[in-house]
Design a protein around this nucleic acid. Structure first.
Lengths: 264, 264
DNA sequence: CCTTGCGGTTTCAGATAGTGAAACCAGGTT
DNA sequence: AACCTGGTTTCACTATCTGAAACCGCAAGG
């Protein structure tokens, strides 16, 4: 269940910060919202929120439906979506490689990136026989208890890592969840040494995965990919057999990304 | 050639307006940009732009590459993009219907919406290979000389129509382009009466199309769809033969959208 | 018909937050 | 060493944002 426990820091001062927080809020609803709904979970007074929303609507970032009196993400945001997706996300680059990996393994494949301190799933391939799970392209999840999250964290420079860890909620989703910073840091050490991460049913019971980071040749973390399955279909050991392919995929994506967008 | 003649009104006061303008600017480049490149086409003084960019980067809307010293759309934008896409755009709803229409006609199919006074193509089916979703979304075109643009304008309420028309550039792309407001208004009248619009090589020579609006039952314009081809493959008369299917598609999309997102 | 209450909008004095000229810094070039 | 060019910081000024409160319009209820 996605509770808002680790809500983005709305309290960051600055007008644009607030405006963007509102934008996030509207987006989060996933449906048109009334002003009154927004004001409820908003830290801002009515008048302030009102002006904020007015501005955003005027700018085309929100769309106001005069009949229903609701706000929804605006068409301008859709336009931004195009270039954002094409540029900031590994998805377009990774697509063919993910297809291959998906075909080779037959299991669920994820491509994720770090958004603030959370994992953002930017693309996904379902297994032949898709199993129900939380992840979904465009969705965010916790970093400290997912394979992709840990794979990325393990290769972050110190100061960034600390910043990310500080924002983890360490909620115990299952009895396998690493629920302390110490345990997490220890695990990250092992991952860094080993080169890949596991998810041992730490987020959802029965769901396991093997994940590796996608890094530039300079070592900067761009994202991570994972092959996921469930305990009643396979085991971690069996999943590990795919490591060569997974690593190869990661490297292929990294190579493509480096030459195309992050030349050293 | 897309000159910046009808640039979005950057001069709208308000900090968020400026910030969003910067965001647009970065997005427009379609590749990582240096600060110096931004400052060139920016009306703001160096320090101001700098703080703006800093803020956006801090907010995760822009990503800064420290190695190359470049800015690109940030990961947070990707996340927003996703929900914007899912909510504000007709694309997800329309997808299956467009597929059908594409199969039935074998021609290029467009789905467009109005963004400010321009046409935003939110989805597209090529005659041959249906590429995945984000790839061709986001391109904008003029409204006064495209089938979809005119189809939408023809059913706009008066005051909105005037606002939109006021922003058209009336550049003569071809010798068929309607290049005066009077000519356009006359054509729009005919379209409103007839229910569908044509593009008679008004934007690109050799390119013709038949377009119909997508409207809620209450008559509000949501978007438009078109079937496009070229003069050396077919004629307007032949394209018109698809009208029943096109209209049916439009109505199906409208029905779905109305029940799902714009209930009356 | 006249309250009351609830969404939504507007006002206004006060202060925060944004502005931008100019100085500054780093590191390459001449 | 003097001189750029690209990026970062400073600081006094004031435009812009803030938010309590008043206001509006409508619908429910007395």
């Amino acid at each position: 269940m996605a509770d808002g426990s680790d809500k983005r820091a709305d309290e960051r001062s600055g007008t644009v910060g607030k405006a963007l927080a509102v934008l996030d809020e509207v987006a989060r609803y996933g449906r048109p919202v009334r002003f009154s709904e927004l004001i409820d979970d908003s830290p801002y007074p009515k008048a302030t929120l009102y002006r904020l929303v007015q501005t955003l609507t005027g700018e085309g970032m929100l769309a106001f439906d005069p009949d229903r009196q609701t706000y929804a993400p605006g068409i301008r945001l859709v336009r931004l979506a195009h270039s954002a997706w094409a540029q900031a996300s590994l998805a377009p680059i990774a697509r063919p490689f993910l297809d291959t990996l998906s075909a080779e393994t037959g299991e669920t494949v994820h491509l994720a990136q770090l958004d603030a301190a959370q994992v953002l799933y930017v693309d996904k391939r379902n297994a032949q026989d898709p199993l129900p799970m939380y992840s979904q392209a465009g969705k965010v999840g916790p970093a400290y208890c997912t394979g992709v999250g840990k794979a990325m964290m393990a290769f972050l420079p110190d100061h960034e890592l600390s910043a990310v860890i500080a924002q983890q909620s360490f909620h115990s989703f299952t009895k396998h969840t690493l629920s302390t910073e110490a345990a997490l840091r220890h695990e990250l050490g092992a991952i860094a040494a080993r080169g890949h991460a596991y998810d041992r049913e730490e987020h959802e019971p029965g769901i396991i995965c093997v994940a590796v980071p996608v890094k530039t040749s300079a070592g900067r973390v761009l994202g991570a990919i994972s092959v996921t399955s469930s305990t009643d279909r396979t085991t971690l050991t069996q999943l590990e057999a795919y490591l060569p392919q997974i690593t190869a995929t990661s490297e292929a994506i990294a190579a493509e990304a480096s030459s195309w967008r992050f030349p050293d």
